[in-house]
Simulated scan of single mutants.
Amino acid sequence: MLDQIKKAVFIGTGLLLLAGCSGGTTDESAAGSEAVAAERLIVGLDDTFAPMGFRDENNEIVGFDVDLAKAVGERIGAEMVFQPIDWAMKETELDSGNIDMIWNGYAITPERAEKVLLSEPYITDAQAIIVLKDSDIQTKADLEGKLVSTQQSSSSVDKIKADASGIFEKLGGDLVLYPSNNNSFSDLESGRVDAVVVGEVYGRYYMKQSGKDVYRVLEDNFGEDEMAVAFKKGNTELQERVNAALAEMKADGTFDEIYDKWFYSE
């Protein structure tokens, strides 16, 4: 009888040990699942490029692309870690594996498309024409004989000069140039110039920050650049996950909410 009791205790103890081991395995599996959910993806960016990604007064990295990337991270189960990089070395950083993606107003060009894998375009940056709301200027052609301002040595200057409509000659071959687009907007508001040409992303950001409902963006522009997220060549798995998340966000209104936070919408 004693032997039978010993056997029963032994078996019971063994079952408890097995149960304990089983519980540990479950915990480890849960921990493993959490590890997968806590995947960290390194986002390379220029932290001086407002409004896409820049440092605020608290030295925190913020911006439109930052908010967009965080929202995508939530949908794909990844923590987005923002890493400032030398912008001139961005593709090298990606190719070496130091970062997982470039997400910072990265304009699509044929040269870049050869070096990296690109997401679907998620925003377009036009060389926008901005006037006061009550202006009689409705199209690019209406700029003839007007005073047009933009930032000196900017791509806006080149786009205006190269425009097929010949508008630069119709402006008398002259533009009102300033070191900063902020100066151009000040002159527009005061009536010293009739229109401002600026990248639409920055222009709408300035309009949002100003808090003044006095501007209007023409449908006409001086050319467009599409922006995308860049991945290392061959990383189609991450590309597809990001593309799917961005498509969902555009469909359910999340993208528009983030856009409206940063940019002026008419």
Rank of each mutant, 00 (worst) to 15 (best):
A251V: 02
N221H: 11
D256A: 14
T48D: 14
V66A: 01
L94H: 03
G234M: 08
T150F: 09
Y122T: 01
E200L: 12
V72H: 04
Q209N: 11
R112I: 06
E257Y: 03
I85D: 00
E266W: 13
N235H: 12
K159C: 12
M89P: 05
D47A: 12
A31R: 15
P110R: 04
Q209A: 08
M227A: 02
E39V: 13
L171S: 09
V198A: 02
E200R: 04
I5A: 14
E60C: 07
V62I: 14
D174W: 12
T139F: 04
K208W: 07
Y202V: 07
V214C: 05
A35S: 12
K146E: 04
G234Y: 09
E120G: 02
S165Q: 07
C21N: 15
I129Y: 02
E237A: 14
P179I: 00
E237D: 15
V148G: 04
I11E: 10
S96H: 08
T13M: 10
L18Q: 07
D174K: 13
D260F: 00
D47T: 08
G172N: 01
Y264P: 10
D134H: 12
L188W: 07
I167D: 04
L143T: 07
D163T: 05
E39C: 10
E169W: 07
E200H: 06
L117K: 00
E169D: 15
T124L: 13
W87Q: 07
P121H: 04
I130A: 05
L94F: 04
I76R: 03
A38W: 10
I167E: 05
F263S: 01
D46E: 09
N243I: 03
E219L: 09
V197Q: 07
G166K: 03
D252R: 02
I42Q: 10
D100K: 04
K115D: 10
A126Y: 08
L94C: 01
S153F: 10
V193S: 06
V9Q: 06
Y259V: 07
M101A: 00
P110K: 01
G73F: 03
A107Q: 11
L41A: 04
V131R: 02
A164S: 11
D3V: 15
A228G: 01
L2V: 08
L177G: 05
A128V: 01
R40E: 15
E39L: 15
E240I: 02
E257Q: 12
T26N: 13
E28D: 14
T48I: 08
S29C: 11
L18K: 06
R112D: 06
E266R: 14
A162E: 11
V157S: 08
K159T: 14
Q4Y: 10
R204Q: 15
F168C: 02
L171I: 09
D56E: 09
I167P: 09
